[in-house]
Simulated assay, not measured.
Amino acid sequence: MKIISILFVLALTLFANFEDGKKVFDTKCISCHKEYIPMNSIKENFFEKQNSLLNLKAPSANMIVFAMFDSSKKIGDENEKEFQELEIESFLKSYLENPDRFNSICDDNILPFYDNKASMKGQLNDEDYKNLTSYFFGYKENIDKKDTLKYSNYSEEQEKEILKKATIENKKIIIYATSESCYFCKKMDREVFKDISIRKMLDENFIFLEIDMDKFSLPFNLQKEYKRLTPSFFFLNSNAKLISQYPGAWIKSDFMNILKENK
């Protein structure tokens, strides 16, 4: 029981550090660095459109995480997590306080598109650098997952935020009803949602929301429409009006046709 308690406290501490790090990113970094941009859009922006599509002046959080952990300039050894964490923390403090383009971890082909980084010396303390490192580590653990919004303590404010986003971006909304115990949900996650063409279609045309039905009810008054079958997919417009619903699992080609019919 004592070991379980220690692990629980450790998990809470790591989560708290991640949340504190996200606050640092949201307050100190978000003015220059977007949190997430789909990788397909990033590739198109830089390698096909010469940055005219997104006009980025700095890398997004997922680009930074890729550079830190997976690029040719990655920092530290992923098999030595504690040392890697210290190295990343040291790099962040060194680079953010004394920016040097020659010491950047960004792709050399993309770096010329960015503005020169201004020093943040005095704006972040040692605890901020530690928490920011925890944020990037936590972000790394989820970077390969679908671009989804997941609910906790669901509120009307979240509904308004989603509808506003759908209106601004001129996108439809997909509500994906799933559960941890759903075999066919996991099959679709593995065989459909990881497909590049499916992800591109979702990124460009929809706001995709995944709801764990073991924990939450459906938003936008959809619970009355739910047939208690996972997976189920609900398509809404930016006014939260239900357009169509598709209970059950789908193979890649059929699901792509569904997306095309509803985009």
Rank of each mutant, 00 (worst) to 15 (best):
F220T: 08
K165Y: 14
K194H: 00
M188C: 08
K186W: 01
Y176G: 03
Y226W: 07
M213P: 01
F193H: 04
Y183M: 14
K171S: 10
I211P: 01
D189S: 06
K160R: 13
K165S: 13
Q223F: 10
V192K: 06
K164E: 14
Q223C: 04
K165G: 00
K200W: 00
E161Q: 13
Q223H: 10
P219I: 08
K171C: 05
K200D: 15
F184M: 12
I162C: 01
I198W: 01
K187T: 10
I175E: 08
K171L: 00
A177R: 12
F220C: 10
P219D: 08
E225T: 08
E204W: 05
T178Q: 05
F208N: 09
F206H: 05
Y176M: 03
L209V: 00
T167A: 15
E180H: 11
S179G: 13
N221A: 11
Y226T: 09
N221V: 06
I211N: 12
K200G: 09
I211A: 12
Y176L: 03
D189A: 03
V192P: 02
S197R: 11
I207F: 08
C182E: 06
K215S: 11
K171A: 02
R199Q: 15
T167V: 10
Y226F: 09
I162K: 04
D203Q: 05
Y183V: 14
F216C: 03
K187E: 13
Y226D: 08
Y176D: 15
E180N: 14
A166S: 12
K186Y: 11
V192F: 01
F208D: 08
E225Q: 11
E159Y: 07
K187D: 14
N221C: 02
L218R: 00
I175H: 02
R190E: 14
K200N: 15
I207V: 07
I211D: 10
I162H: 02
R190Y: 12
I207R: 02
K171T: 08
E159K: 07
I175V: 09
E159V: 03
F193N: 00
K194V: 02
A177M: 01
L202G: 04
T167W: 04
I196A: 13
I174Y: 04
F216M: 06
R199S: 09
S217W: 07
